[in-house]
């Protein structure tokens, strides 16, 4: 799949934002006054910044409001609702926190809505049978793990961040390993795509067109996979690094920022690969993956 920068930025940043807001809404950290305002503002900035970035790849962003209508069947529509509701429900919690109030029941509801948003985002990808690498439990698991780990680092919860970073890295390694097998497991092949497998071995004799097209650019994008092995290593190292930084270095803003930088490096590398390595079954018609 084509690794569109807007979608990578959207999923990483809004995931981080909603992850952080989850901790704030649950009252796991209780910044007050100006600190509280800043904390919630950072959460909102990441969440909304990501959502705005997601509209950049639309053909008609001015019609985006229509995306709220089909929540009955569409995970993309549900994500829109969950995001708006989560951001609305967080507002009174944020106002309360600035005044020194604990989040309470409303905070719990807002936190659940933040988690629902992350879940809906992940299901946009995990629901697609046509992309076997995404159509797996590791997709929602990874989206939650990235959001909650990033949120914990921003919350300056050193021990929890370290534990989550280790878990995230392990999960990422599992996802990388099983991703290689998913296409074969899904059963898609040129034989089933053409239905000619019963006759014999099928191969592409002549392409349907000599020029490029939307399918080749969007779904059979192979350029991004060039450095897949190196990027996997970078992602695995960068996601586990915050654990070492937070446990070994003395606490403070610089340490948190270092850990966050490492985490985001890993998140962006992993999310790039999430798209670039994902093979769409339509590629079989072109003899490609």
């Amino acid at each position: 799949m084509h690794p569109a920068p807007s979608v990578i930025v959207f999923t990483v940043l809004s995931g981080l934002g909603f992850g952080f807001l989850t901790y704030l809404n649950l009252g796991l950290i209780l910044p007050q006054g100006l600190g509280g305002f800043l904390a919630f503002a950072i959460g909102y900035a990441f969440a909304i910044g990501g959502l705005i970035a997601s509209t950049f790849h639309l053909g008609h962003p001015e019609r985006a409001i229509r995306a709220f209508t089909q929540w009955r069947t569409s995970w993309l529509s549900r994500e829109g609702w969950a995001a708006v509701l989560a951001l609305l429900a967080t507002a009174p919690v944020a106002l309360g926190a600035m005044g020194g109030a604990r989040p309470g029941l409303l905070g719990l509801i807002a936190a659940l809505l933040c988690l629902a948003t992350i879940g809906c985002t992940s299901m946009i990808y995990a629901q697609l049978k046509t992309v076997p690498r995404w159509n797996h439990w590791t997709t929602p698991a990874l989206f939650f793990a990235f959001a909650l780990t990033g949120g914990a680092i921003l919350s300056d919860l050193a021990v929890l961040s370290a534990v989550l970073s280790l878990g995230l890295t392990a999960l990422l390694a599992v996802a990388f390993a099983q991703g290689e097998r998913r296409f074969a497991e899904a059963g898609a092949s040129l034989a089933s795509a053409t239905g000619l497998g019963a006759i014999g071995q099928v191969r592409v004799f002549e392409q349907a067109h000599t020029a490029g097209n939307y399918l080749l650019r969007e779904m059979i994008h192979v350029v991004g996979r060039k450095h897949a092995r190196k990027l996997q290593t970078i992602a695995l190292i960068a996601t586990v690094l915050p654990a070492a930084i937070l446990l070994l270095l003395p606490g403070g803003l610089v340490t948190v920022l270092l850990a966050l930088a490492a985490h985001l490096t890993g998140a962006f590398a992993a999310r790039w690969l999430f798209f670039a390595q994902a093979e769409h079954v339509v590629g079989t018609y072109y003899g490609k993956r």
Binding site: H57, G59, A64, I124, T130, N213, M219, Y285
Partner: peptide, 27 residues
């Protein structure tokens, strides 16, 4: 008139039946 050109339907189709028009920005 209601298409926002997000391209998710083209991703969901196994057969490559949908192409986003580069000029009009709709599927």
């Amino acid at each position: 008139d209601a298409c926002i050109g997000c391209g998710l339907c083209a991703w969901a189709c196994p057969y490559g039946a949908r192409e986003l028009d580069a000029a009009a920005g709709v599927m």
